[in-house]
């Protein structure tokens, strides 16, 4: 085994390692001299910090950056996830019997109550995204892990289930774009954060931002379940010419 690696990759391996080493050294030198660690290097961020809470109502500045100042990036991110879910659906054909697991005492008992706790925590993370660390993506992933724990013991594939996740994914994505378009049509700018600002720091604040996060949370959760379902289904890979 070792000899195979050595023979095939000797020269190119050495060259690659040297190049990477040189590059890393150069990188460290540049970082150390050009981008001083721990110093205030902010430019546009100063304005974000000054205006973030007043303009969006969210006390979590990162949320105001993610959903308001740089909302278009978040839309792109949502799109990337959606596209990857679609791509996985393209590669892997659906198979029979996803969740076939051996009966396992710990798993059986835990899956009776643990998923709900996890999903609850996930919902908390999503809903508090504008006042504390959290948000749609983080919470969505937690929710999906709870869902998967719940489903891992199902013996037959849920017939309507696949459809539900895809419908949810699509609707939430479209909903996000729709809200962004509302901003365009009604307020003149795509992704304008509208809605009642409320009292910053409370749950019902920041206008449409928590709604956007909720959409993202549901979308991410359903997307993950869909992707993982495709991965674990034992499909027969036939010719698709």
């Amino acid at each position: 085994m070792l000899e195979g690696i050595n023979r095939k990759y000797d020269i190119s391996g050495i060259i690659a390692s040297l190049v990477v080493l040189a590059f890393s050294g150069l990188l460290i030198y540049l970082l150390y001299t050009q981008i001083p660690y721990g110093q205030d290097k902010m430019l546009v961020s100063k304005d974000y910090i000054k205006m973030g809470v007043n303009s969006t109502g969210a006390t979590n500045l990162v949320t105001s950056v993610v959903l308001s100042f740089r909302g278009l990036d978040t839309l792109g991110e949502v799109t990337v996830l959606f596209a990857s879910a679609m791509a996985v659906g393209l590669f892997l054909l659906p198979g029979a019997g996803m969740w076939q697991r051996e009966e396992n005492f710990v798993l059986r008992v835990a899956s009776r109550f643990l998923p709900y706790l996890i999903i609850l925590i996930g919902i908390y993370i999503v809903s508090q995204g504008h006042v504390s660390p959290g948000g749609g993506f983080q919470g969505g992933v937690v929710i999906s892990s709870g869902l998967l724990l719940k489903l891992i013991l199902k013996r037959e594939k849920e017939s309507g289930f696949g459809g539900l996740v895809h419908a949810l994914e699509s609707l939430m994505g479209a909903g996000f774009v729709a809200l962004a378009l509302v901003g365009l049509v009604k307020y003149g700018s795509f992704l304008y954060s509208f809605g009642p600002k409320g009292v910053p720091g409370t749950l019902l604040s920041a206008g449409v931002l928590p709604v956007l996060y909720a959409f993202i949370g549901v979308k991410v959760a359903s997307e993950f379940v869909a992707i993982l379902e495709r991965f674990t289904s034992s499909g027969e890979e036939d010719e698709r010419a």
Binding site: M42, S45, G52, V62, R70, L81, G135
Partner: peptide, 18 residues
Amino acid sequence: DPVPQALVLTAIVIGLGL
């Protein structure tokens, strides 16, 4: 700085998609 945190949030998700 809140911006790098927002950027990394997006970058992690993109990496996940890939």
